[in-house]
Write a protein that binds this DNA or RNA. Sequence first.
RNA 1: GGCCCCGUCGUCUAGCCAGGUCUAGGACACAUGCCUUUCACGCAUGCAACACGGGUUCGAAUCCCGUCGGGGUCACCA
Length: 496
Amino acid sequence: MSIRTRFAPSPTGYLHIGGVRTALFNWLLARGQGGQFILRIDDTDRERHVDQAVEKILDGFRWIGIDWDEGPEVGGPFGPYYQSERQDLYRNAAQKLVESGRVYRDYSTDAERAAEKAAAEKAKRAYRFRKPAYSDADLARFEAEARPYALRFQVPLGRTLVLNDAIKGPVNFDTDEIGDFVIVRPDGAPLYNFASAVDDVAMRITHVVRAEEHLSNTFPQLLVLEALGAAPPVFAHIPYVAEPGSRAKMSKRKLEEYEKQGVLVYLHQYIERGYLPEALMNYLSRLGWSFDAAQEIFTRAELIEKFTLDRVNSSPASHDQDKLFWIEGEWMKTIPLERKAAGCIPYLRQAGLVGDALTADQDARLEAVITALGDRLKVFSDILKLGRFFFSEQVEYDPDAVKKRLRKDGVDAMLGDLAGLLRDAECFETAPLEQAVHAYAERAGRKMGDVVNALRVAVTGQGVGPGLYDCLVILGRETCLARIEKARALLAASKA
RNA sequence: GGCCCCGUCGUCUAGCCAGGUCUAGGACACAUGCCUUUCACGCAUGCAACACGGGUUCGAAUCCCGUCGGGGUCACCA
């Protein structure tokens, strides 16, 4: 039988990179063994449902290249794939458990349970719900007054459950540690530990790969599975993703703090910056998994071929944005020019630097700029940071660069000479321009670095960037001359 | 607090299950040098870890126990 894995997000917001990694491991496992990867939306709790969340999740998966064989939009033989649409299934399963005596009606009130919970906490002991000793008269009365009840699973005491986790190894758990848990709320809504187990059986899931926070949840689920007469799937619990530079788990509360430090934790943030999907997939795969002692860069096909559960680490990994950035750079080096151009255009458009459709000139210029930028372009949004001055009439002079390269004795006169040189250049191409500038530096007895850098700042406004002659040629003679004039005016103004 | 999981350079990790080849390897980051008109790239070098304490053994990062630290769970959330 071929394997079937699943990822079951609840539509409560954006996709966290930890969640994407979990989905990725499931997907890799299925793809590597010719099985199926299923997407199921765990939306049993309608109160927490966020509009558009499902669409955003699906878009995220599509972007990174995780495709699903069954699930939203594509359907499949075990649908529907929204838990909110599978109520009958849960009702039937619950009915079956009631009939077999594994589940009972719990008439307790919120206030009663809250009081017991508080007492347990005060006494520093774990709170565990156990079946109340209702008398027949009580039960008759509750029924007569149609008192609402939840359905609870009666946990068999004194047993030791054994889970053979594919990542953690064997884990023993005493059933005495598990309180009787609710499987269906008074309003009829099934709860996670129940719905998830029922769905995994119904959808013929063979491998459940999920975050380790579910490790303890597995035992109630094992009990449900057993009561349902179903064989448990293989479970694999992967460690959480820790925050950068620490072992502490990333927390939603600290989100603002991460933002301040420039750490991105949501998938859409990486998409917005213009990261490459293959880079993010590569990075995420290496977070908690390795193939051998050396390989860092993996193509999608290699990942599918080489991924196995037994090489997933059992200890937490912390998110390392620097490493992701490096992997991104490695991948960007492999991307052909046309794709880089296509990736950059949305940013130029957003900045109002190009229109909806590029003119032939703009198109040619964009390709020239990207070529000149070379490895400096790491993420697509860099086109704005590194190459804005190629597309805008405006030049913004970086004060530090101006101070370091232009505000020096003799620079103004030198720029005048250089302007003349550019004006008179017969052939406005990189090689001849380089020759001319070289000759000038020698004639004027100036260091090449001083000449070149002054000219760079004058025409680009920046102290760093692509090769100077590339810049000159792409900008064109007229623009270069105009900008040199502007730079000289700037110097004159500040001197006065 | 009970129970469960985890603990190798700052970070991602190899090695651990089947003890010696580990004066612990690779990568990111950082530092220095080379290349170079800047930056980026590339190349070279350097910095840096077996959480701690016992035990077993001729020998322990590897096996056992304890301590400490981190995390999860104990919801009518997922």
